[in-house]
Amino acid sequence: MRQMLAFTLLTLLVLASGLGLAVAVLSLPDAPTDLAARVDAGLDDSGVSHPVTAVLLNFRAYDTLLEIGVLLLVLTGTWSFGLERRLDPEGPVGPIQAELVRNLVPLMVLVAGHLLWLGSKAPGGAFQAGAVLGGAGVLLVLSQHPLPAWRHPAGYRATASLGLLVFLIASVATMRDGRLLEVRGREAGLLILLIEVAAAISIGAILAALFAAEAPETATSLDERKEPQP
C-alpha cells in the first residue's frame, strides 16, 4: 500500500517536472547570439570546410580533448574491475561467421578511413570513424579473435592513449603567447587531420576494449590456450 502510494506520488512528480520542462522549452526566448553565423564567419580560417568538424576540432577543441581523456579514464576504470571475458560462451565460432568477419573487418577499416577523410568537408570525422573501428573490434572479440594487441598489453595501452597524447602534444606545440588550441589557417587543417587520425584509432581501440571488458594482462590469447607454452 505504501509502495503504491509512493509510486503514484513519484509518477505525479515526474509528470509535473515534464510539464514544467515543456513550458520552459516553449517559452525560451530567441538565442541572443547567432552562433551559426559566427561559425560560418570563422569557417574559412578554421582549416576545414565542414562546420561541425570546425567546432569539434577548432573552435571548441577543448571539449574534444577532454572527451578523449574521459574515454581513457573509463577504460582505466573498466580494466581495474578485473572482469573476465568468457572466451567461448557459445562454443567454437562457425565457419560462416569466421569467413564473414574475415571479409568484413578489412572493409570496415576502409569505411572508417573514408569517414575520417570525409570529415573535413562533409558529415563524418574522428568519432564516426572511431565508432566503425570499434564495431570492427567488437566483431573480432565476438568471433574470438584476440584483439591484435591483446598479446602486447603495452602496445594496446599505447594505442588507446595515442589520441590524447597526440592531441596534447599538438596543442602544446602550437601554443602561442599562452593561448592554447587557437590555430588558424592552413596549419590548422594539417593539425586537425593529424589529431583526427590519432583520435579515431584511439576511440576505436577504447570502444573495442570496453566491450571486451577484461584487462589485457588477464586475457589468454587463443594461441596460448590451444598450445600451452612449454
Binding site: 551559426a36 562546420p51 561541425v52 570546425a54 574534444t64 572527451e67 574515454l71
Partner: peptide, 13 residues
C-alpha cells in the same frame, strides 16, 4: 546551429 550538433556528437560517445 553546428555548435549543439558538435556537443551532441561528443555526448553520444
Amino acid at each position: 546551429d553546428p555548435v549543439p550538433h558538435a556537443m551532441v556528437l561528443t555526448g553520444i560517445v
